[in-house]
Amino acid sequence: MTNVLDVDGLKRSFDDLVAVGGVSFSIEPGEAYGLLGPNGAGKTTTISMVAGLLESDAGSVSVAGKLMTTKSSDAKRAIGLVPQDLAIYPDLTAAENLKFFGSLYGMRGASLNERIMTVLEMVGLSDRADDRSDEYSGGMKRRLNIAVGLLHEPQLLILDEPTVGVDPQSRNAILESVEGLSSRGMSVLYTTHYMEEAERLCDRVGIIDNGLLVAEGTRRSLVDSIGQDDTVHVTATGNLHHVAELLRAVEGVVTAAEAHGVVSVVVDRAAIRLPSILATFTEAGVSVVAVEVSEPNLEAVFLHLTGKALRD
């Protein structure tokens, strides 16, 4: 069976800046694939090349066996892009927006209207179809944004950080929509810098940093790959950057990084190492506010692989 998506050795630079430095991955039919990485890791550049919006410097993208370039309409028919920004006309109704984008795919007449009703049903906007989209709540606009991407029954739905800057309620609505689609067999490419989203939605996750795919696999296999290491989150006030540096020299500590007043420490066994970790804080003259120990997760994997915290 052909893969829905094959990305092979994709590269792209902007002037001197290497945004994507050779990325390869594949998505099987029905699979939900997450591209996880911090802001500026190269996620949007990768997505732009996958969606045929940007020429690559090297490498190839094929969607359902068809080569994707900025000009290949066959490959583009197979994808549905849900951009990060809303990309709908605020002064048109939901139905008008859908009709417009549908006709860009050459859809028309009764079949287009039927399809519009179907996708509106899927995202739960049927009763608001004829309202202007600038009258919608934030969550409804997001759902309409997804509906546009589903309209032409693509084989692969691409969502580019759909939850950035969204309130928790809307965010949940988006995640539920994607989960629903995924469970109905839709192949999904999902980029995010939220570890929880990738864990919740994706069958497989690729971890991207500095334009390179540093690890790939199911959640389980990724977590296993860093062994049974625990992660200790220490909330504290003071020079945390310095503390993180000191911690890396502590026995049993795999790596440590600070972000937003929290020092995350990957450690072989938290129960044994906790006293020496806390001692390091005290020695550095930093007062600890809270300590939390968590099971291995993708965030720990990222920290382990890059020595950086995932959060922005």
Binding site: G52, L86, Y89, F101
Partner: peptide, 15 residues
């Protein structure tokens, strides 16, 4: 600005 142009280009319509 709305990002609609970008979205149009992701469809089968050429630039």
């Amino acid at each position: 600005q709305l990002g609609v142009t970008r979205r149009m280009l992701s469809t089968t319509a050429s630039a």
